[in-house]
C-alpha cells in the first residue's frame, strides 16, 4: 500500500468565517461525547449522529479519519515489531515483562484507533501493511538483542514526534485530541524506558530524554528521527538565553514534532 495516499484523504484546513458557527457547534457536539473515562461509550455512539453533522463537520471528520489512519499505520508497525520480537525469543528473559507491556499497549492502540475510525467516525481503518524490519537486510532485530533495542528506541521516539505533530490537526475534536494526547504520553514513557535500558546495558549513553538531537550509538540511518530535537526556542523565547541553563538540558526539556511526511519517510524504510 502507498502510505502517502493516506495524506490525500486529509482535507485542507480552509474554513470561511461563516462556517465558524457550524464548526463550533460541532466542537460542542464532540464535547458532549464526554471525557476519556467514557470512551467506550463514545465508541458506541450511533453513526446517525455523525451523518447529521453539517457539511463542514463532515469535511473535518474526513480529516480526522486521515490523521487517525496515519496513527494506526504507525501503531501497526510498533505492534508487529514487538509481537515478532517476543515470538522470536531475542529478548532477554528479564526484560520480557517490559516488552510485553509495550506490546500490549501498541495492540490496544491499534484496536482503539480501529474502533474510533470505524464506529465513531464512520471511516475505514487502514489494513496492516507488510513490514520488513530488516530494512532491506540492514538490520537483524530478531536475532540480535542490541539491534532490537536500538530499533525499539527509534520507533518509540518517532511515535512521540508523530503524535505531537498531529495535535493541532485533530484539535477540532476534543475527544480525538485527548485520546491522541493520551497515546502520545504512553509512547513517551516507552521511549524513556527503552532509552534507559540501552544505557543500563552499556549499549549507549543516552538518557530517557533526547539531548541535542543526538542519535547516540544508533545507526546513522536514524538521524532523521532526531533532526530538530536540538531546538531551544519556543514561542519566540530562547530558553537558553532566558535561563542560562545549558543548551543540552534545555533541548532535553522540550520534545519536537515531526510532520506526517517526515514520519512516513522514516516508516517507509520498514515497509515490505
Amino acid at each position: 500500500m502507498n502510505l502517502l495516499k493516506l495524506l490525500d484523504t486529509m482535507c485542507p484546513d480552509t474554513k470561511t468565517p461563516e462556517e465558524k458557527d457550524t464548526f463550533f457547534s460541532r466542537r460542542d457536539a464532540f464535547r458532549q461525547f464526554g471525557d476519556l473515562s467514557k470512551k467506550m461509550a463514545m465508541a458506541a455512539i450511533p453513526l446517525g449522529i455523525l451523518s447529521a453533522l453539517p457539511k463542514v463537520a463532515k469535511a473535518d471528520t474526513a480529516s480526522l479519519i486521515g490523521v487517525l489512519n496515519y496513527a494506526l499505520t504507525l501503531e501497526h508497525l510498533e505492534y508487529r515489531y514487538y509481537q515478532t520480537g517476543l515470538e522470536s525469543n531475542v529478548i532477554t528473559a528479564a526484560d520480557r515483562v517490559i516488552f510485553q507491556k509495550i506490546r500490549d499497549h501498541e495492540l490496544a492502540h491499534v484496536k482503539f484507533l480501529q474502533e474510533v475510525i470505524a464506529n465513531v467516525l464512520g471511516g475505514t481503518p487502514v489494513v496492516e501493511p507488510g513490514f520488513d524490519f530488516t530494512a532491506g537486510g540492514n538490520f537483524n532485530p530478531f536475532t540480535d538483542y542490541p539491534t532490537f533495542l536500538a530499533l525499539s528506541q527509534a520507533f518509540e521516539d518517532t511515535g512521540v514526534r508523530a503524535y505531537k505533530g498531529q495535535a493541532a490537526n485533530v484539535k477540532e475534536s476534543d475527544v480525538v485530541l485527548t485520546a491522541a494526547l493520551s497515546i502520545h504520553s504512553v509512547e513517551a514513557r516507552h521511549a524513556s524506558m527503552v532509552r534507559r535500558l540501552r544505557t543500563i546495558k552499556g549499549q549507549d549513553t543516552v538518557k530517557g530524554w533526547i539531548t541535542n538531537g543526538s542519535i547516540g550509538s544508533l545507526p546513522a540511518a536514524t538521524q532523521s528521527i532526531y533532526a530538530g530535537e536540538e531546538n531551544v526556542s519556543h514561542g519566540g523565547v530562547n530558553v537558553v538565553s532566558l535561563t542560562g541553563i545549558d543548551a543540552g538540558a534545555v533541548s532535553e526539556a522540550w520534545d519536537e514534532p515531526l510532520t506526517d511526511q517526515q514520519v512516513l519517510g522514516i516508516a517507509s524504510l520498514f515497509l515490505a
Partner: peptide, 16 residues
C-alpha cells in the same frame, strides 16, 4: 504544540 512538547518530557521523567 508547546504543551505537547513539554508533556512528553514529563512522561519521560515519570517513566524514569
Amino acid at each position: 504544540l508547546i504543551a505537547g512538547k513539554i508533556v512528553s518530557v514529563e512522561a519521560r521523567h515519570a517513566a524514569a
